[in-house]
């Protein structure tokens, strides 16, 4: 069953009077539990597509439906609530809040829920355990290595148990060994926890960890 359905999606940026089309009429289905890799040259629109799926940006035309809900028809407020429930986002530069500890960073999405402090604690510790950083809960981002920071960011992305994980070049800033650990972790999330993952990467080796590879080039998506 398709978790994610993208229908005739187009994105055209407008800079001054000039129209910059990124892609036009893209169609794509992603099934629940799939681990899909998206590749493509720089500037081809991979980040743009991810942002659209997460409801962080609006398409020019077309529709995105996730789990039966039409994301592209939601208000800003509905989108925020929807993201909180269904999407985990992982960035190339981790984007942890430097003033919060690993624990507190992972806890952030749970603040939006009705969970009690105790319940939040259980969830956070579970997430930190999955990413292998239970012993670093009280460390601040600057006290962690890049790989560890990215693992905290993954912990933050999975803590509220979202359906969909979107990762934009999560290993782009890491050395080979750390990158490998991150990819193994993501594979585990997919296999063990049944997470649907869309991974953007430039790295062929990383791409091989996924179940299928798509290419976005010159506005055309091929699977």
């Amino acid at each position: 069953m398709a978790l994610l359905e993208i229908r005739s999606l187009s994105k055209v940026y407008q800079r001054d009077s000039q129209a910059i089309p990124v892609f036009e009429n893209i169609d794509l289905d992603i099934d629940t539990g799939e681990f899909l890799v998206l590749m493509g040259p720089s500037g081809s629109g991979k980040t743009t597509l991810l942002n659209l799926i997460a409801g962080l940006d609006e398409p020019t035309t077309g529709a995105i439906i996730v789990g039966g809900e039409e994301v592209t028809a939601m208000s800003r407020r509905q989108l925020a609530a929807w993201r909180s429930d269904h999407v985990g986002f992982i960035f190339q530069l981790y984007n942890l809040l430097p003033v919060l500890t690993a624990y507190q960073n992972v806890e952030l999405p749970l603040l939006l829920t009705h969970l009690s402090k105790k319940e939040r604690r259980e969830h956070v510790m579970t997430a930190l355990d999955v990413v292998g950083l239970s012993d670093r809960a009280d460390h601040f981002p600057r006290q962690l290595s890049g790989g560890q920071e990215q693992r905290v960011a993954i912990g933050r992305a999975i803590v509220s148990d979202p359906t969909l994980i979107l990762a934009d070049e999560p290993t782009g800033d890491l050395d080979a060994k750390s990158a490998d650990e991150i990819l193994t972790l993501m594979q585990r999330l997919n296999r063990e926890f049944d997470k649907t993952i869309l991974l953007v990467t430039h790295d062929q080796r990383a791409a091989e960890r996924g179940e299928a590879i798509m290419h976005l080039d010159k506005g055309v998506l091929t699977r």
Partner: peptide
């Protein structure tokens, strides 16, 4: 602003 944007991706609403 960067951190605010990140919080928004986590689902923090405009109002919050």
């Amino acid at each position: 602003t960067g951190e605010v944007a990140v919080l928004k991706t986590l689902g923090f609403s405009d109002r919050l």
